[in-house]
Amino acid sequence: LNLKQAKEEAIKELVDAGIAEKYIKLIANAKTVEGVWTLKDEILTFTV
């Protein structure tokens, strides 16, 4: 999975969960695949 694909998957998951745009922007700015997954997990843990 490359960075672009990771971001697309994570953003789709966050949108489906009804997460606010400000958190989705954090994913869009992530620099690594690991960073994308870590941010996604943290956002889902603390906002859902």
Rank of each mutant, 00 (worst) to 15 (best):
Y23R: 02
G18I: 03
K25Q: 12
V36T: 03
A20D: 13
L1W: 09
L1S: 10
T45Q: 14
N2E: 14
I27M: 05
K12R: 12
L39W: 04
V48T: 13
L26Q: 06
I24C: 06
K22A: 09
K7R: 08
T47G: 14
N29I: 08
T32N: 05
E9P: 00
N2Y: 11
L39T: 05
K40G: 01
K4V: 09
A28K: 11
V33L: 07
L1Y: 12
A30P: 02
L44C: 05
E8L: 12
E21C: 11
A17I: 07
I27C: 02
T38V: 12
I11A: 05
I11Y: 05
V48P: 08
E9G: 06
I43M: 05
K22Q: 09
T38W: 14
I19L: 07
L3V: 05
F46I: 11
V33Y: 04
V48G: 14
L1Q: 09
D16A: 15
L14W: 01
T47Q: 11
I27W: 01
E34A: 07
K31N: 09
N29H: 10
D16N: 14
D16H: 12
E13A: 11
E9Y: 14
E8V: 09
K12P: 00
A6T: 05
N2A: 15
N29R: 11
A28E: 15
K31I: 11
F46T: 08
D16R: 14
L44P: 01
I27G: 00
T38L: 14
A10I: 04
T45A: 15
E42L: 15
A28G: 07
T45K: 15
T47A: 15
D16T: 11
K4T: 09
A6R: 02
L1H: 10
E21F: 09
A28V: 10
K40H: 08
I19S: 04
K22T: 08
I11D: 00
I19N: 01
K31E: 11
I11H: 03
L14D: 00
G35H: 14
V48C: 14
E9W: 14
T32L: 02
L39D: 00
I19C: 09
L14T: 01
F46K: 11
T47C: 14
T32G: 02
L26G: 03
I19K: 03
I19F: 07
L26E: 05
T45R: 15
L39K: 04
L44N: 03
G35A: 15
I43W: 03
A10E: 01
E42K: 15
E34R: 06
V15T: 13
I19H: 03
G18Q: 05
F46L: 13
L1M: 13
F46A: 09
K22W: 11
T32S: 08
E8P: 01
K31P: 06
E8W: 10
E9L: 14
K4A: 13
L39P: 00
N29E: 12
K22L: 08
K22P: 07
E9M: 15
K12N: 06
A6M: 04
A17T: 04
A10F: 02
I43P: 00
L44H: 03
I27A: 01
K7Y: 04
T45Y: 12
E8R: 11
K31R: 09
I11K: 05
Y23S: 02
K25F: 09
L26R: 06
K31F: 06
G18P: 00
A20K: 07
G18F: 04
V15L: 14
G18E: 03
V15H: 10
D41I: 14
E13T: 08
E13N: 06
L44E: 03
A20I: 06
F46N: 12
E13G: 05
E13P: 01
A6P: 01
V48I: 12
D41G: 07
K40T: 07
D41M: 15
V15F: 07
E13D: 07
V36K: 00
L14A: 03
E13V: 09
I19W: 04
W37Q: 11
L44D: 02
A28P: 02
L3P: 01
K4S: 09
W37V: 07
V48E: 09
A30D: 01
K31M: 12
K12M: 06
A28N: 12
G18K: 06
A17G: 04
K31V: 12
E8A: 13
V33T: 05
I19E: 01
A20S: 11
V15N: 08
L3A: 02
T47F: 15
I19T: 05
K22G: 07
L1D: 10
Q5T: 08
L39E: 01
W37A: 08
A6W: 04
K40I: 09
K31Y: 08
G35S: 13
I11C: 06
N29T: 10
I24L: 10
L14P: 00
K25M: 13
L44Q: 03
A17N: 07
I24S: 03
D16P: 02
V36H: 01
I43E: 01
I11S: 04
I27T: 00
E9V: 14
L26S: 04
L3S: 01
T32Q: 02
E42D: 07
E21G: 08
K12V: 04
Y23Q: 03
V48R: 12
I43C: 03
G35W: 10
